[in-house]
Each structure stands twice: as structure tokens, then as C-alpha cells.
């Protein structure tokens, strides 16, 4: 057992954890923040995406004790049912989900992805590494491809993200 402390959604948590505990299980099983989903536990599906110090990560692929002092944002930190984040509202409006299980990961991923674009971070499909990154259809889809939606809501998710990003899908 090891002590670790980190901030989740602006609140500091002190935990004493089995060192084998993933950040995902620390959130879900210890802090009961179950909005972050376990789809595969192997970094293959993206359902567990959270934002750590501004970057999106698969929380199943990292141990909780590696996050001493980190600032973590989960889906619960973005908005509430009565006070939705603009992306959450856009997902509802565009029906950017069906079963809802990949949804928190999609939304966390999209929030961080838009920040990456703003920061000029290129992707696999960026043509010109010297020009500012434009969020084209190809860029959006490439950058979101780590988040699987088996219900197949991709077309609607792209529209929801595009609306918030101020462009058309």
C-alpha cells in the first residue's frame, strides 16, 4: 500500500492504494467517480479517457501512484445534468451517443483534442507542419479515433464536436 494524493475536478484526494491500482480503478472503485468507464482495461477503446494536467490519457494504462500532485479532470468535472458543458449539451442535441458507455471518454477526449488543435499540435493527417492546424473533417476523425463507439454514433459525434468548435462537419 502506498499513499498518493492528487486533485480530481478541483478537489484534493488522499488515497492509500495497492500499487497495482490503475488510475481508472482509483477513480471508479475508490473515489466512486464512475463516469469514467472501463471498456477494455488495455488501452484499446478509449472509454476511460480522462484529462491529466491538460492532456488526455487512457486512465487504464497508468497506475494511480504515478499521479502524485497531478490535476485530473473527469467527465464529472466538466458539467452536471443541470449544468452541462457545451460539448455535453452538443452531444445531447446531436444524439452523439446511443448506449452512452463510450460517451464520457468521447467527451473528455474531444475537450482535450480541441485544445491540442488550438495549441498547434499536429496529427498523422496534418499536411503542413508549419501552418496552423485546421480542424478539417479528416483531422477531427483522425484525432478522435482512439475512442471507439460500437453503437456507431461517429457521424453525430463529429457534428456535436464541430458545432462546439464553430465549424461544420
Amino acid at each position: 500500500m502506498t499513499r498518493v494524493s492528487f486533485d480530481v475536478n478541483g478537489e484534493t484526494h488522499q488515497l492509500e492504494l495497492d500499487t497495482r491500482t490503475t488510475l481508472l480503478d482509483a477513480l471508479r472503485e475508490h473515489l466512486h467517480l464512475t463516469g469514467t468507464k472501463k471498456g477494455c482495461d488495455h488501452g484499446q477503446c478509449g472509454a476511460c479517457t480522462v484529462i491529466v494536467d491538460g492532456r488526455r490519457i487512457n486512465s487504464c494504462l497508468t497506475l494511480a501512484v504515478m499521479h502524485q500532485g497531478d490535476e485530473i479532470t473527469t467527465i464529472e468535472g466538466l458539467g452536471t445534468p443541470d449544468g452541462l458543458h457545451p460539448l455535453q449539451a452538443a452531444f445531447v442535441e446531436h444524439d452523439g451517443y446511443q448506449c452512452g458507455y463510450c460517451t464520457p471518454g468521447q467527451i473528455c477526449s474531444a475537450v482535450a483534442m480541441l485544445a491540442e488543435v488550438k495549441a498547434g499540435i499536429p496529427s498523422h493527417v496534418t499536411d503542413d507542419l508549419n501552418a496552423p492546424v485546421r480542424l478539417t473533417n479528416a483531422e477531427l476523425r483522425e484525432r478522435m479515433s482512439g475512442n471507439i463507439c460500437r453503437c456507431g454514433a461517429y457521424s453525430n459525434i463529429a457534428e456535436a464536436i464541430s458545432e462546439v468548435a464553430g465549424r461544420s462537419a
Binding site: G35, P81, L84, Q88, A89, F91, V92, E93, G100, T103
Partner: peptide
Amino acid sequence: SRIEGPLKTTGTAP
């Protein structure tokens, strides 16, 4: 829009 949408998008649907 789905009536449970605000729950699913905020991670509060159990």
C-alpha cells in the same frame, strides 16, 4: 433529444 441524455453525457447514468 433523449430524456436520459444529460445523465449519459455527464457520466451519471449508472
